[in-house]
Every structure is written in structure tokens, then in C-alpha cells.
Design a binder for these strands. Structure first.
Lengths: 329, 329
DNA sequence: CTGAAAGCGCTTACAG
DNA sequence: CTGAAAGCGCTTACAG
């Protein structure tokens, strides 16, 4: 910029005015400065600019896994909102590791992002309190914040699961299994709660071998399912606690001698092409991202200084066939 | 930092030393500075630091769509490599719009990212030449750079398609259709080329109504397929030019009276659960991202100053059933 | 309409 | 082992 000023024979401030398209510069001067800019191939250094203006026009997004089909549309929605507000997006995956989440969040804060959208991997975000007090707007999405007061945008996990399990009960099932993700994950627990509530609402018992929580690896799901499907009181229907469980369940059940009804939490692309087509409880992944990002920018733009809010988006039951199979015995 | 120095009763430089864990500070001084840091809740401003050190330790990733199941693992791979080099990642979606690509790239450059990984939406990247000369390392991935000399990492699209079509020919097909993405997209053309080559290698004709290029919307694919499947010389097999085409083709073909063989470019999660299971030519999406990012950091770390390279990763045919259906007439 | 001075928060290069 | 000065590339607040 100094070079441009020298070459155009003007002051630094005038170059700044031209670069920022501020009013009040003679067309003649503008032309001279512009010529110098072009000749020198000058491009403004936004990092320096932002040091002075105290706004970086960037937000950080921390999620579980960029490559996860559920989070991909969520991050795209956050990007779209950020873009419409002129902000760039830092992204990072926590891989479900609280330490990594914290590293990423603090690295983003050290770059002085204006705000953060975080899918928590940790259940304790007190490390963020000083940053939030220092003015970093923060919205938690998909899972609640831990030990810190902040905006939260969630899916109604318990309600969605309740609906799904009630749907199975309505189709005559009495022995219904549930396979969920690790109990350390909030959404996994909420879904388990929904399952229990639906069973209780129908005055149905829940035997200990009917539900299993843990890693959603194919082996673990296979093993859990084998237990539920054997013994004197095998389940006639299964509620799969997420995407990955559903996929493995479809594989296992297609080899099973008796038909078993299936409802899965989370929709997935080819669910309607499988045989039978898979009934799911669908979340609104883009809606989560969009809502969270809009909340963030409302705070950043000073449009609201209300106390932190908690938003719950509904989940939607989509009957396709697998959830309407009657009990087999 | 000034406040910390004042409170600890030391110079600015000493605080800097402690913050950066440089050697040569009395343990006693370190303790005093650390106490002041904690008391004030001081966190180093990396933006300011980077203004001085001239390295931002960040890279920009521009791709077609963050939410696309093909690009999600690619971006995750780039993130992992960046992370292992201590760099943060800016991400953005071009939505196949050259202007948006340029906006994003230049915005990243204005923030002075150290390097860029770009999935081109444009076929002219001369706008990037000044930035590259100014030292922004750039690697293009999935599609080649346009009118600029840079590192490129591609899938062998023509070769993969050739293998897939040859596979159909080996199973007795003579009339084979091809539905591809818009001809403005490089990979779409390469795949069309592979189709033509495979047919030519087998001395088979290609009728004009057997291939169609255009948007991969369900309606367009349906219409194109209807044309190929009707008339006096209907195709007995289809090569689908990408993921989205394959999915629509599966839907249409499952309703079709005669069995039609299908091979699709790109693998997708439940391909083996459909009936028939879908034979695909699979790309290595994480491999593309990893290779591109490694190349980028090799340049950034000054480990290589060779001329730009062109890397082609092989695509792999995965027979599952749909590609092994014999001709029906 | 234009510009010189001060400063954003840090590091570099130097001196003690 | 420690610190004062200068500067990274820009903007803010002011004066002319």
C-alpha cells in the first residue's frame, strides 16, 4: 500500500479510500491510484485490515466429522448463512475427541473469529467461558453445551424416537429392540429415553437384553442384534439409534429367517430403494445448521442481546415399508 | 500483552518469550509472567502474530459443494493433512459457479492463506497467476487447472470408464448407453471419452441417441434414459457418469420391464444392498484430498521446487451384480 | 478533497 | 537473561 501511495504520489489514506471505495476522492485521483494498484498487482491484506477493525468476518465451525453424511449438509447450511453475511468459514473435525474439540475451538479463537458454531464432542465447555465473555458469539448445535450458558439448537431426539417406537407399537409390536450410540453422547441418551417413554406409554416392559448402547461399528451392532433376535423372547422390531446402526441392521435383517420390522433414526439417500424400503425418523440437518448460523449472526450484528435460547427442531417420521411389517410370531 | 507486561513488571519481549515458550527466561520470571497471564485471561492474538511472521498457517479449500457425499471425504482428508502440519482450514463451496470460485479464492488470498486446494468450477484460472507468483502454493484437485501452470491431482476418469464399459461389453452387451454430467465439466468429458474409446476398441458403433450430457437432475436423467430404452435399437446396458445419475438410473430401471445392466461411476454407501447390487467404478476420494494436500505442504515446506506435476489416481471396478446382467434380447 | 500521525497486537533484529 | 525500538499492513481520528 505504501508502494502504491508512493507510485501514485498520494498519501496512504487516499489509497485506503480507493481500495475501500469510500466516497470523496476526485475521479482523477482514483484513476491515478487505480493505475498504480494495477501496475504493482496490489491486493489488500485483509489480515492486517482486520487487526485494526477488530472484526475478522470469519466464523469457526467445529463438528464431529466433515465426512459424515449427516454433518455435510449442516456445514453447507452454515456456510451459506456465513456467506450471506460476508463471512468466511473455518472448519474442523473433532472426531468425537473432547481434547481435539478444545484445540480447534481455541485455535479459532486465537485467530479471533467473530463467532463459533460447535457440535460438542465434550460435555464441559467451561474452557470457552473467557472467550465468550471476551465477545466470541457461540452457538452449540446438535448437542447441548456443557456447564456454560449459550445458545443451543437441537433436534427433538426423544420426541422423534418416541414417535418411531409408537409407530412400531401401533403396528402390533410388543417386543421392540433399541440399538444406540455410545452413552457418552447426549443425542444417544435422548433417543434411549424416547424409546423407554414410548414403551412405558404403552405399558410395555423393556427387558435388559432388548437395548444396547455402544460404538456403532458393524461388529458391535451385529453382536447386539444377535442377542436381541435370539432367546425365548426375541424382538419382532428394532429401532436403530442412528444412520450407521440402521445400515448394519438392514444388512443383518436381510439375512434373517423371520421378517423383523425396522425404524431408523436419520434419513439416508437410498432408503426408499431398499427392500423393504426403510422407515425412518428424519432430522432436518440443513435446518439445524441454518438456524444455528442465523442465531449466531443475529448476536454478532447486535440484533439481539437476549439470554441464550434453546431451540428444538422436530424430527419427522417417514413410513416407507420396513416400519410397517407386522410381528412375525 | 502490554497489560501482561505491565502487571508482571517485565518488558513486552519477555512476555512474548513466555507465551512462545522460548528458552532463556528465568523460571522465576516465567512464573511471574504466567501469573499475570492467568490473572488477565490473556490469549495471544494469532492474527497479529501472523501479520509479523508472514505465515498464516492456514490453507483454503474450495470445492463444488461441502454437502456432496463425494467431496465430504475429500475435504476431511485435506483437513487431516493440514492438521498434521499445524494449519487451519478455510472451506467454501463454489456451487459450480466460476464467479463464486474466484470470489472465494481471492477472499482466501486476501486473508493471506499459505496455500490453496481448489476443485475448479472454472476453466480459466489466470486470475490466480499473480497470487501464485506472490507465493500462494496452489494444488488443483479432481479437475485440471485452466490456463495456469500448477500441480494437479486427478482420477483417471477416462481409464475408469473404459474399464467399466469394457466390463459390460465382456458380458455380451453391444448397445450401451452413457449418461453424463454437463459437458462444461472436465471429468464429464473424460468419462464420455472413455466410453467412446471402449466402444471403439470393441469395434462397436455409438448411436447419437445412446449418449446424453447435461445437468444430473432426476428429470433430465429420466428423459435421457427413456430415449435410450425406446426405439428400434434400445440399449441393453447403461454406464452412469456419476453418483447422482446412478441413483436415478437405479430408480428408473427397477420399474423397467426388461432387465438392463448398469455400471456407475463413483461408489456409494448402500450400493451392495440394492437389488441387484450396483456395480461401480470407484474413485478414491480421500486419496485425492490427501495427495493434493501432501503436495501442497511439500511445496510450502520448501521440500520441492520442481515444476508442477500431474498425478492420476486409478479408479477401481467393483463388480456387484448390476453390471453382470446379460443382454435381455 | 487529502494526508500525517498514532495505533491495532504482535515479532524481529539488536543492544545491553 | 532482558528490554527498547522499529515495523508487519492496514485503519481511525483528526486536522487542514
Amino acid at each position: 500500500m505504501k508502494d502504491v501511495a508512493a507510485r501514485a504520489g498520494v498519501g496512504l489514506k487516499t489509497v485506503s479510500r480507493v481500495v475501500n471505495e469510500e466516497a470523496g476522492v476526485t475521479p482523477d485521483t482514483v484513476a491515478r491510484v487505480q493505475a498504480a494498484i494495477d501496475a504493482l498487482g496490489f491486493r489488500r491484506n485483509d489480515s492486517a485490515r482486520l487487526l485494526r477493525t477488530r472484526r475478522t468476518s470469519s466464523v469457526g465451525l467445529v463438528l464431529e466429522d466433515l465426512a459424515d453424511p449427516f454433518y455435510a449438509p449442516l456445514s453447507r447450511a452454515v456456510e451459506d448463512v456465513a456467506r450471506s453475511h460476508g463471512a468466511l468459514l473455518f472448519t474442523g473435525s473433532s472426531a468425537e475427541d473432547p481434547r481435539r474439540e478444545q484445540e480447534l475451538v481455541l485455535a479459532f479463537c486465537a485467530r479471533r473469529v467473530d463467532g463459533l458454531v460447535v457440535v460438542p464432542a465434550s460435555d464441559d465447555h467451561r474452557y470457552l467461558a473467557p472467550e465468550m465473555e471476551a465477545g466470541v458469539a457461540t452457538v452449540f448445535v446438535d448437542r447441548p453445551a456443557g456447564r456454560v450458558d449459550a445458545d443451543v439448537v437441537l433436534t427433538d431426539n426423544a420426541g422423534g424416537t418416541r414417535d418411531g417406537v409408537a409407530h412400531l407399537i401401533a403396528h402390533g409390536h410388543r417386543r421392540i429392540g433399541f440399538i444406540g450410540d455410545q452413552p457418552s453422547i447426549h443425542t444417544a441418551n435422548e433417543r434411549l429415553r424416547g424409546y423407554r417413554e414410548a414403551m412405558a406409554n404403552a405399558a410395555l416392559p423393556v427387558l435388559p437384553q432388548w437395548y444396547a448402547m455402544g460404538p456403532t461399528t458393524p461388529d458391535r451392532v451385529r453382536a447386539a442384534l444377535a442377542v436381541m433376535l435370539s432367546g425365548p423372547e426375541p424382538v419382532t422390531a428394532l429401532f436403530a439409534g442412528n444412520n450407521r446402526v440402521t445400515v448394519t441392521a438392514v444388512r443383518v435383517l436381510s439375512d434373517h429367517p423371520r421378517p423383523v420390522a425396522l425404524v431408523g433414526f436419520d434419513d439416508f439417500e437410498l432408503a426408499d430403494l431398499l427392500s423393504p424400503p426403510v422407515t425412518v425418523v428424519a432430522q432436518d440437518a440443513p435446518g439445524l445448521g441454518r438456524t444455528a448460523a442465523q442465531l449466531l449472526f443475529r448476536r454478532l450484528d447486535g440484533l439481539t442481546t437476549d439470554a441464550p435460547t434453546r431451540t428444538e427442531l422436530p424430527a419427522r417420521l417417514i413410513p416407507r415399508g420396513s416400519g410397517e411389517i407386522p410381528p412375525s410370531s
